[in-house]
Simulated scan of single mutants.
Amino acid sequence: MKKPRPGKSTPNLPSPSSEGELRELASRLADMDDNALDAQLLVTFREARDNGTVPADAGFFLVAHILLAMADEAIAEDAQVLELGRELEKMEQDYGLLEDAAWGSGEAPEEWEALCRQYDIACDEARATFFREYGEQEMAELFLHDRASFIRRFENGRGFFHGLPMAPDFLN
């Protein structure tokens, strides 16, 4: 999913009420680029959440899910994330870690583990900044300062649509 630019307009798509309208909607969605499609999904998911079309946690999940996907693409361009990523790569090279290899449990140097924690914090802060840029201040605060509540609401909402629990590594 691609990050739409804040404030970029998206096509006004009607709610389908007949098979013909549904086919027309599907055709218009297929013609959208990734940015426009993500933006339309965000608008639609917010509307479902804000209008109470789905339970509160289900709406939270819909909005959080699309924003996390969009944010994960956007943080690849974050200056601090890029810099820390380069530092991690250099440190791995300096220690002789082969590309696509990983240290076993307890084998990584303490400096590398500390830098990984800084990298994870920078990624989380960049995601929260992205949430704020898209008007989701409460979600950003939960993500940064009350991750357990964020995960609980996300998982409760995900369960509304998908049932069985999952292990969302990116939320830990």
Score class of each variant (00 low, 15 high):
A39F: 03
F160Q: 06
Q137C: 06
F154W: 08
I151G: 01
G85T: 12
L142E: 07
P165Q: 05
N35F: 14
E111W: 03
I121H: 09
L98I: 14
P109W: 01
D38V: 15
A76K: 14
Y119C: 06
A36M: 10
L42C: 07
F60K: 01
G163W: 02
E99F: 08
R147Q: 11
N35D: 15
E89T: 12
Q93E: 13
I151M: 08
L142V: 06
R127F: 05
E87Q: 15
N35M: 15
F60C: 05
L41W: 03
E155A: 12
M32P: 04
L84I: 08
A102P: 07
F130V: 03
D146E: 09
D50L: 14
G52P: 07
Q40A: 15
R153E: 09
A79R: 13
L68S: 13
Y95H: 15
M70F: 09
A79L: 14
L88P: 01
A128I: 03
E89M: 10
R127D: 01
C123I: 08
E99N: 11
I75L: 15
G106C: 09
S149K: 14
D31V: 09
L41Q: 10
A114K: 11
A101G: 07
W103P: 00
A102N: 12
D31S: 15
G106Q: 06
V81Y: 00
S149G: 08
F61A: 02
E111F: 03
Y119P: 00
E133G: 11
D38S: 15
S105M: 14
G52Y: 07
F154Y: 15
A122W: 00
D120C: 06
F143Q: 00
I151H: 05
E141P: 00
G159K: 01
G96R: 04
A36T: 14
D146V: 06
I121K: 13
Q40G: 09
A122N: 05
Y134G: 04
T129K: 08
D50H: 10
D78K: 04
M32K: 06
E125I: 10
M32H: 09
V81P: 00
L67H: 02
Q80V: 15
N35Y: 14
F160D: 02
F45L: 07
R46G: 07
P109Q: 09
S149Y: 01
F130M: 03
N51I: 08
Q93S: 12
S105D: 14
F161A: 09
W103G: 02
Y119D: 04
G159P: 00
G135M: 01
H162T: 13
K90M: 09
G104M: 08
F143T: 02
A74W: 05
I151W: 02
R153N: 06
A56P: 06
G96F: 03
D124F: 01
T129S: 13
C123S: 10
A69W: 07
N51H: 12
D33M: 05
F161R: 07
L41Y: 07
D57P: 04
M70W: 03
V63H: 01
M91E: 03
D31L: 14
T44N: 07
M91Y: 02
I151C: 04
D34V: 13
A140G: 10
F160V: 07
E92V: 04
I66G: 01
R147F: 06
V81K: 00
F143C: 00
E92Q: 13
R117Q: 11
I66W: 00
A64T: 05
D72W: 12
D34F: 11
D100F: 12
E107V: 13
A101P: 04
L84T: 08
